[in-house]
């Protein structure tokens, strides 16, 4: 059986006055049913744009999917019309955004926002929709759901709003849920609650999840597989345990070493990565990480490495790993 979602050589570029920003520049990955795939990278690496491309929400203009394919249950998403895309989005694939303060409508009550998808996709309205809305609020752990239905977003705390966002995403029982930095705007104690909730919901419903984050700690507890992105490309892709215990790409290694850890002993200095991520209107030649890489040699500047198999279920795009890899 093919995977639930197959992204193949996806390129999403932004056409700006300063030039073409290659935000996503040829990424390929699969998401299987019931699995959680974590996508990790720093700001501007293309992790969010990659996800927005799946659901057709890349602002156009200036952005556009210029090449590649996205197959969802074998169906090509990149060529769908706006209307057709609208039938998929929210029903079969739904999204949870980072900022629960700005992604809810401040002048609509919770009930209306919760049931919007049900009315549109399933034609469920009135009493039936209210029953489902209460059920959803209970599912995401909101106490006193009947009262909350009549309230407005400003009456809720940040954690509660993010629970509402998740309830909206779940309303139509999607097969895939994309969470874009779902806990970044929240405090740690609330983040822990939301991550627990997402993991539980996913376990019970069997939906697949793409979790986008910059926080390696968040990924460690939740994801089955991890994709590391840098400057619009995938540099490494592996099972979660392998990424953390046997990272192959110099960027992944450097990223892991640069994060202060709560359980570390006394480390005088962190191993910082020198420099800053490149400007994507004019990415460096060859491997895009090479200007910051401590292991680079001449071949890194000359040619752009493709993903190679380093071990079963472990891909890496690095010339220095080539000797250990098969193409």
């Amino acid at each position: 059986m093919p995977a639930l979602l197959e992204v193949h050589d996806l390129k999403t570029h932004f056409f700006t006055r300063q030039g073409v920003v290659r935000a996503v520049d040829g990424i390929s990955y699969d998401v299987d049913r019931g699995r959680t795939v974590g996508i990790v990278g720093e700001s501007g690496c293309g992790k969010s744009v990659g996800a927005l491309s799946i659901v057709g929400l890349v602002p156009n203009p200036p952005g556009r999917v210029v090449a590649g394919s996205i197959l969802f249950e074998g169906r090509e998403l990149t060529t769908l019309s706006k209307r057709e895309m609208g039938r998929v989005r929210g029903a079969e694939i739904s999204m949870v955004f980072q900022d629960p303060m700005t992604s809810l409508n401040p002048v609509m009550n919770i009930r209306t926002q919760l049931t919007e998808g049900l009315r549109f996709h399933r034609g469920v309205d009135g009493h039936q929709a209210t029953v489902r809305a209460i059920e959803l609020l209970e599912l995401v752990g909101i106490p006193d759901p009947e009262r909350r239905l009549k309230e407005y977003p400003h009456q809720l705390s940040g954690g509660m709003r993010q629970r509402i966002m998740i309830a909206i995403a779940l309303a139509c029982n999607p097969k895939l849920i994309i969470c874009d930095e779902p806990t970044t705007a929240l405090d740690v104690t609330i983040q822990a609650q939301i991550l627990e909730l997402l993991a539980e919901l996913q376990r019970d419903s069997g939906m697949a999840m793409i979790l986008i984050t910059h926080d390696l700690g968040v990924i460690a507890g939740v994801a089955d597989e991890v994709i590391i992105m840098y400057a619009g490309k995938i540099v490494e892709k592996a099972l979660t345990a392998d990424i953390f215990h046997d990272p192959q790409h110099p960027y992944t290694q450097a990223l892991l070493a640069s994060v202060p850890r709560l359980d570390e002993g006394d480390r005088e200095y962190l191993e910082a990565i020198p420099g800053a991520p490149p400007d994507l209107t004019d990415p460096p030649a060859g491997c895009r990480f090479s200007p910051r890489c401590t292991q680079r040699d001449d071949s890194c500047r000359a040619d752009d490495p493709q993903l190679m198999v380093a071990a079963p279920d472990h891909w890496v795009a690095c010339w220095r790993c080539e000797s250990r890899c098969r193409l």
Binding site: T189, Q191, A192, L195, A220, G221, A241, V259, R261, L262
Partner: peptide, 13 residues
């Protein structure tokens, strides 16, 4: 607070 902070290590986590 300490137990809410994720550790970047899947087994420990």
């Amino acid at each position: 607070l300490l137990s809410a902070i994720p550790i970047p290590d899947p087994e420990l986590e």
